[in-house]
Design a protein around this nucleic acid. Structure first.
Lengths: 226, 226
DNA sequence: CAAATAGTGTCTCTGAGACACTATCCG
DNA sequence: CGGATAGTGTCTCAGAGACACTATTTG
């Protein structure tokens, strides 16, 4: 990249142009077994209403780090692996000035939200996110589409289940994400090839014990710690 | 978006943070019937070597407009509908300072490149783009993958052919883009349902005249992002 | 034992892909 | 006419989906 090739025909270079502010906004989803996909919203300061968590990019900060910081500070949520979506660049989308927003999405197991700031945040079904500005509704919809796409063919790609799980647990999760019941036989055939058998069996479950599986040994998503 | 919700816990607001420079870089592809997918590179000022065309975002400019401007000024190419890909945000990726780059891709019919600045630009096969910096190679690869994905199921979604065309012309284009010969029968069955028949026939072609088709009347590409 | 769930075998029917045949142009 | 391409009909075989049956647990 480097060098002067960005000088335009009038000879201007890097420092001659005003710069936009850059922000990140994130649709953080989770799965409620009963209510389906849920999105986290945060109370907006000095305003009535709710919105997606976001923040301005700090100097030399990575976008993914800004996302994690905003979720931690605004919602008390950690252990997030954000996915970048797209940049919103309408010049007048923010009345404070020229602000580009890089939209992100992420999914976490519901347990990760146990620590969330109860008065500052709320979890609502993705289908009825309340009154939000245009951008934010698009981000939620894109997040939902992405997650559904992922869960159509891969076993729990976002790691919402524990390390090992039964076929039934996996299928019920996919049922919830995709909002319709998947065929039991097809699901087993399709997913078995993409999982590792552990050899051990579930105990204490109703009915015949089921074999426990684990995700194919892709290093189970780095930075999953605290 | 608006409002003070971006103030962080220390009460800082929009104007208190240094801002990054924002640039756009574009992999502009075209199809050479003999050499396959080609990418346009521009000579870099004050440096030996070639790179993808790019520019800094002007005040209040849309990203897509910056892409069009850079392609027009640096390569003499017009009529481009850019697709946004992703943001490169490594803090030290540019040695002039903190520069975010929004990568884009686009495809144009080869005729559009007739006007290009011959000494300033070159067209090279996507498989051997020469020595480029890391970012740029990724952008080219992503562009190629996107284009191939598009052409797997939809008839000439990027509008590389004229308004009407024969099945054969369409299939040869897809063959070139996908780099393997598609089955004639399958291709016809699959694509016919997604095209409009014109009723008129090709003339002057070798063999039996073929029916001319046109793309389904979707308004021929309004500004789409993402 | 009844209910619930796991695991496996098998049947069917659709649709992708392959092939074949006819039609119609150019030279 | 011969070569090339268009257009359409038909055959086959794999795989999705449905169904059935057995196994093994809990209550």
């Amino acid at each position: 990249m480097a060098d002067k090739r960005f000088r335009d025909s009038s000879g201007k270079s890097l420092d001659d142009y005003p710069r936009p502010s850059v922000a990140v906004d994130t649709a953080l989803l989770t799965v409620d077994p009963d209510r389906g996909l849920m999105v986290l919203e945060v109370k907006r300061d000095n305003t009535s209403g709710w919105g997606l968590p976001g923040t301005f990019l700090h100097p030399n900060e990575r976008l993914a780090d800004a996302v994690r910081r905003s979720l931690l500070h605004k919602a008390g949520v950690s252990g997030v692996e954000p996915h970048q979506w797209r940049v919103f660049d309408e010049p007048d989308r923010d009345d404070r000035g020229w602000v580009l927003s890089v939209a992100h999405w992420a999914v976490v197991p519901t347990e990760r939200l146990a620590s969330r700031l109860a008065t500052q945040t709320r979890l609502v079904p993705v289908g009825s996110p309340g009154r939000l500005i245009y951008d934010h509704r698009l981000i939620i919809d894109a997040a939902v589409n992405h997650v559904r796409d992922c869960y159509r063919s891969e076993p729990d790609p976002e790691g919402l289940l524990d390390e090992t799980f039964t076929m039934r647990e996996l299928r019920l999760l996919h049922d919830t994400v995709l909002e319709h019941q998947l065929d039991r036989d097809w699901f087993r055939r399709e997913m078995k090839a993409k999982l590792e058998a552990t050899g051990t069996m579930s105990v204490g479950t109703r009915g015949r014990p089921a074999e426990l599986f684990r995700r194919r040994s892709t290093p189970p998503r780095a930075s999953r710690s605290s």
